[in-house]
């Protein structure tokens, strides 16, 4: 039996993680509830004030739920390892650290996307069933592909998948937060990420400023910037936006997420059950 990854053990782990995660039911009901309440409210306001209503408007909350909800969920995915009542049983469960880590990444990434799509679909169905008899109108059935379709893009599926890819690429930062921080992992990770981003901006800002100020004889710095700008302009105007997005976004995204997941895995292997002598 492979000591790092075994599909049978991995299957047991996913099943165990999903079926004992009682909070998922609460999240699901909350999302469907918020969706339905807002839908009923918006139709009531619209009928009372004769204001025009975009039947699709509530579905635009989806990115908010995806990113904020998903980052909070990712920040909690390994919370058991920092809980004195849960950590011993979590670490001594017979599965490799890699299997446990991958299950966490899958559930908080792809699992959350599927979960949220189903919750929005159910939300639109429930609110439709409630608003149709009263207002003779209801929410459109939730469809992420339709929601995020961008005319300029050849494929509406691709344009919808971009938003999910951004989430998949970035949620690994919050997974590290859930491993490292014992309490308030979401807030601490968001704060830490902001500080790091600001620090990078300051460093690169100063670098750019001083390079420009140096005023090198032939202004090579300006030429580099202009050629980069021209490259993106040509790529954008070539009509192949998909290829453009792939180059500037997907490849760096994969490198970004790989780096953070490797760091997350190493942090998990180093984690100990502290407290109590």
């Amino acid at each position: 039996m492979n000591k790092y990854f075994n599909t049978k053990r991995f299957g047991f782990l996913i099943k165990e993680e999903v079926l004992t995660n009682y909070k998922m039911g609460i999240y699901f009901i909350t999302i469907v509830g918020i969706y339905t309440v807002l839908a009923i409210l918006s139709f009531t306001v619209s009928s009372l004030t004769d204001a025009a209503i975009n039947r699709n408007s509530i579905n635009y909350m989806f990115p908010g739920f995806l990113f904020i909800g998903g980052y909070i969920f990712s920040s909690l995915i390994f919370s058991d390892i920092n809980d004195k009542f849960k950590s011993s049983l979590w670490f001594s469960l017979p599965a490799s650290t890699l299997e446990k880590y991958v299950v966490g990444v899958l559930l908080s990434g792809l699992g959350y996307i599927i979960f949220l799509n189903i919750a929005f679909l159910v939300g639109s169905l429930v609110s439709n069933a409630l608003t149709q008899p009263i207002f003779k109108d209801g929410m459109e059935l939730f469809n992420p592909v339709k929601l995020f379709s961008i005319d300029e893009l050849d494929s509406s599926f691709f344009s919808a998948s971009i938003i999910f890819l951004v989430y998949i690429f970035t949620h690994s930062v919050f997974i590290i937060g859930s491993i490292v921080f014992k309490k308030a992992a979401f807030i601490k990770t968001a704060l830490a990420s902001s500080i790091v981003s600001i620090a990078y901006s300051i460093i690169f800002g100063f670098l750019g400023y001083y390079i420009g100020k140096l005023g090198l004889a032939d202004h090579w710095d300006i030429r580099v910037l202009m050629s980069v700008e021209r490259y993106f302009e040509e790529l954008f105007n070539s009509g192949n936006l998909v290829s453009f997005l792939y180059r500037i976004f997907i490849i760096p995204g994969i490198i970004f997420t790989l780096f953070f997941n490797v760091v997350g895995y190493i942090k998990l292997t180093e984690k100990e059950v502290k407290g109590g002598i």
């Binding site: 004992t20 849960k86 049983l89 292997t269």
Partner: peptide
Amino acid sequence: RDPQFLEDLFFLPEEFFLPP
């Protein structure tokens, strides 16, 4: 924490949480 070792270990902590 090899799985082969963990398959042969049961650790009962003093305080623990059981899922609902």
